[in-house]
């Protein structure tokens, strides 16, 4: 059974169909990354999987159970979210921020149990923030903040995690650190990941599978090495792309047209 199953999913926002009839299944313990140009509907798609969007049609199911039939608490125990622009509440400690991930377990009327505290301690260790546990969240660097947000999602102890551009704004080293941590959770703990990424090279190197979304529809779906070599990819991005192999890893390189530059931007949603 698939960990994530989208069946004929459509999402309409303010009269616009941002996601159209998407059907997708993600196997448990695998990493699927959604790529696509700006305005393709990637964020809307992952937010729908996280239960934050009303569906115009179709269904999201986690382990065969419809998301719509779950309570908010139940949903938060099944799917966690790393948003693209998380709110960082000034004055809160790193520990307390990560511990927010346990809300669905202890509720808002009870204090966290000893097992909740144990989970938070373990997560802080996994995201390498144990020594920062008492620091104010706003004092962290961009990379540390993003690891902290990942930590909050891990503290939800879900089998499915959705991430929306989790490495936006990070330098190369912190991008790699963040994605390596996530990969470890997939390989060692069986986490199922559905992420969006703009960086095609990193998308190809870390995901088991890539889904190319454009104008709200899936136009390509397959193993990463095949998708990044597809002519369709270049066509959808409206530019020339090359794939070079370095030490066994695929690197996607945009090729500049010296005469014209990239094609004029088509109408974006």
């Amino acid at each position: 059974m698939s960990a994530i199953a989208l069946r004929d999913l459509s999402v309409r926002v303010a009269g616009h169909d941002l996601v159209r009839h998407v059907s997708l299944e993600v196997a448990a313990g695998s990493w699927c990354t959604v790529i696509g140009p700006n305005g393709a509907g990637k964020t809307t798609l992952v937010e729908a999987v996280a239960g934050l969007r009303s569906l115009a049609s179709g269904e999201v199911a986690l382990d065969g159970e419809a998301l719509a039939s779950m309570s908010g608490r139940e949903r938060a125990r099944r799917v966690s979210l790393v948003p693209q622009h998380p709110v960082i509440p000034a004055g809160m400690s790193v520990h307390d921020y990560v511990a927010l991930g346990r809300t669905a377990y202890h509720g808002v009327l009870r204090a966290p149990s000893s097992s909740d505290h144990a989970v938070v301690a373990s997560v802080l260790e996994r995201v390498e923030l144990t020594s920062f546990r008492d620091r104010d969240v706003v004092t962290l660097s961009g990379g540390e903040r993003q690891r902290m947000v990942l930590g909050r999602a891990l503290a939800q102890s879900t089998m499915v995690m959705v991430l929306d551009e989790p490495i936006t704004g990070l330098d190369l080293r912190h991008q790699m650190t963040m994605l390596e941590m996530l990969r470890r959770e997939v390989d060692d703990c069986g986490l199922t990941v559905l992420a969006t990424l703009h960086d095609l090279t990193l998308a190809g190197q870390f995901a088991d599978r890539l889904v190319l979304l454009d104008h709200g529809e899936i136009v390509l779906d397959g193993p990463a090495s095949e998708v990044i070599r597809s002519d369709e990819l270049a066509k959808r991005y409206e530019m020339e792309l090359r794939v070079v192999e370095i030490n066994g890893s695929d690197v996607v390189v945009p090729v500049r047209d010296a005469r014209r530059g990239p094609s004029p931007l088509s109408t974006e949603q």
Binding site: G72, A76, L81
Partner: peptide
């Protein structure tokens, strides 16, 4: 939105 994703009604 994030509160909802954490299971808060």
């Amino acid at each position: 939105e994030e509160s909802r994703s954490l299971g808060l009604p």
